[in-house]
Design a binder for these strands. Structure first.
Lengths: 153, 153
DNA sequence: GTCGAATTGACAATATATTGTCAATTGTTT
DNA sequence: AAACAATTGACAATATATTGTCAATTCGAC
């Protein structure tokens, strides 16, 4: 296989990632709509859920690759809707902690079940080994890209 | 491998796609910045380039999964900057055709070279077959997802 | 050809994202 | 502890995206 063909495959993979990103976001919006959520709101709630402990807005932003301001706005929305609340942070007077309310926890649990169902459908007819191989490759690509960006800056 | 583990792998793959999408967009912005472009503008120009013929704004939107309005705004910007121009459409009185100017063509050619260089770096140390296997799997995932969305609507 | 449905660009209104600035706070260095 | 740099939330300004509406136009059914 020539370098040209390899590059072509990888370029097509990049384009496919763009496509899938859009599709997944759409699926996320569909799954969350019944709860008054969106993919973006789900992402913020998920960050707190995955951390297993309250996080500050800035921490969520760093973990998810979002700006502080974007997370702040979403967190404020989520508080208004009752999915999360702010608690004083003993380690930082200004940086309040975002934590999930019971309603937020319950919604996330329900959403996780819906997501599990969705991903099961998504995997129909696909070989498990092929999935893990693809995941490994994507992670390698991500790692290479980070190296490139680091060198470039 | 249990169904649970397969789902976990696929969920991680979805999350990795989100990560990569952000990284690729960032790389695209970096590559295009010297020309006064962005990833979004590049995408619109690329659609016309790939088609090999002038396209209407609505056609570009459909092909790229963007709204008409978003493409229209970007196309207007590109015209102001001299990268593309509008031509009368013999088949449709209102829907003008977007075509690349010489400047647009030249810039795209240069960008393609830069992209080729970037993707070569991105592929360093990766096996060609692994890339094409991953691409195949991602396309299958995309196809499955389209089926799900279609059933759901 | 005529009618109705679908497409299109323009425009407006709203929502969301990005970027920069500021003062309060925290962490680090000395 | 004093000085300085980095982080943080709040706010503002701008940029971009989304959604809905409208009239002009095109297309299809008949």
């Amino acid at each position: 296989m020539t370098q040209y063909q390899k590059n072509k495959q990888l370029t097509d993979l990049v384009l496919e990632v763009f496509q899938l990103n859009g599709q997944f976001l759409q699926a996320g919006d569909r799954l969350t709509r019944p709860f008054g959520l969106t993919s973006a709101r789900w992402q913020v709630m998920g960050a707190v859920y995955l951390a297993g402990q309250p996080l500050t807005v800035a921490q969520i932003g760093r973990r998810m690759g979002l700006s502080r301001q974007a997370v702040q706005r979403i967190a404020n929305d989520l508080e208004k809707l009752g999915f999360c609340s702010f608690a004083p942070n003993p380690d930082h007077a200004r940086a309040k902690l975002v934590l999930l309310t019971d309603k937020g926890q319950d919604t996330l649990t329900t959403l996780n079940r819906a997501q599990e169902q969705w991903v099961t459908e998504l995997g129909k007819g696909l070989d498990e080994k092929a999935i893990s191989n693809a995941l490994t490759l994507l992670r390698q690509v991500g790692h290479n890209n980070m190296t490139i960006e680091k060198d470039t800056e």
